[in-house]
């Protein structure tokens, strides 16, 4: 096992030497490591996935990925850095839909996701779930709504931030069921989950990995109210989606590699081929499974359509709410 670690160190060292060496031929791609911008924080699921992919990609690409965290300002810093980077295929990003799908509708992000970026490869995505501790009285969505009608504004739900992905879910439920909840925003999904699990808010949002939610629902520690997925989740075939309940809300933490507009098509193809090969590698599959996720590789027109649909659907949500975008 240690030997592989040493090999890895060797590969990194070789990469460093390569960067330092004068770059003669530019025709061949890639001839130097590829920088992957992460507009999310260190240690989050995007970071872990990037590093998991990076741990195998050199075998298929001939060059390593260097995961670079450029978090802050709700994704603005990292994503504008991607926009400004040279479109030569040496700077890409592992994007999150809260940055390219939601944030641009809420405020000025300094980029237009439709014209500035191209999605090249989907790693996977995991849907949000509305959960509550099993000690609360609600077992189903109907229980919750009936109670909320009796006590408007008394039941609290924590979210990962104002006008962020889970706040939208709360708004959509309130609109669909004509009820009022107490919305308590936190900085990040982890803290919001913690408030729910500590009993400080009544409900909260999670994906399968947040605080080991998958196992907690199965063991009966948490009650799953509904999932924000397109179809019922294979892990929870007996739990409804929000669509089924008449709530227009879908959100998954989406992990998609993006390139800035202008990267030559042949270079994109090389990256895609390597990523597809990597996603078949046993090592990567095992690593991602250990996180509690699965690889769902996707590229090409299907992904591009999904990307544009995602942006438009949140645009519609904000429009329906009558939200006025903040200029600066």
């Amino acid at each position: 096992m240690l030997k592989r670690g040493i090999l890895w160190v060797g590969a990194m060292a070789a990469a460093v030497v390569l960067v330092a060496a004068p770059q003669a031929e530019a025709a061949k791609y890639p001839i130097k490591p590829i920088k992957v911008i992460l507009a999310t924080g260190a240690g989050g699921s995007h970071d872990m996935h990037c590093r998991a992919v990076a741990s195998v990609i050199h075998e298929y690409l001939g060059q390593p990925f260097l995961c670079t965290i450029r978090g802050g300002a709700g994704g603005k810093i990292g994503m504008t850095a991607l926009k400004r980077s040279k479109p030569d295929g040496y700077t890409i990003a592992l994007g999150s839909n809260s940055h390219f799908g939601i944030a641009p509708h809420a405020r000025d992000m300094g980029f237009d996701p439709k014209t500035d970026f191209i999605p090249i490869f989907q790693v996977n995505g995991s849907p949000f779930m509305l959960v509550t501790k099993s000690t609360t009285p609600w077992k189903t969505y109907k229980d919750l709504i009936d109670d909320a009608k009796k006590r408007p504004g008394k039941i609290s739900i924590s979210s990962n931030g104002a006008w962020g992905s889970s706040h939208l879910g709360i708004i959509q439920i309130m609109r669909a069921a004509n009820v009022k909840f107490k919305h308590v925003p936190f900085r990040g999904g982890g803290k919001a989950w913690q408030a729910m699990y500590g009993g400080h808010t009544d409900l909260g949002w999670a994906n399968v990995t947040t605080g080991g939610t998958l196992g907690r629902i199965k063991s009966g520690d948490l009650t799953l109210i509904a999932t924000a997925s397109k179809k019922r989740m294979p892990e929870f075939p007996n739990h409804p989606t929000f669509y089924e309940l008449g709530v227009n809300y879908e959100y998954q933490s989406w992990r998609v590699f993006l390139v800035p507009k202008g990267v030559p098509q042949d270079r994109i193809a090389i990256l895609q081929a390597a990523l597809h090969k990597a996603s078949k590698s046993k090592t990567l599959k095992k690593l991602v499974n250990q996180f509690g996720e699965k690889l769902i590789p996707l590229s090409g027109p299907k992904l591009e359509k999904a990307y544009l649909d995602e942006i438009d659907s949140y645009g519609k949500v904000f429009k329906d709410m009558g939200y006025k975008k903040k200029k600066k």
Binding site: A42, G43, Q194, Y197, T209, T210, G211, G212, F291
Partner: peptide, 21 residues
């Protein structure tokens, strides 16, 4: 105990634990 990282470094360490199963 709960999978709630106490800090940014703890969050990354948690990822490392998870990657090992």
């Amino acid at each position: 105990a709960f999978g709630i990282p106490g800090s940014a470094s703890a969050a990354i360490l948690m990822g490392a634990f998870m990657a090992q199963g």
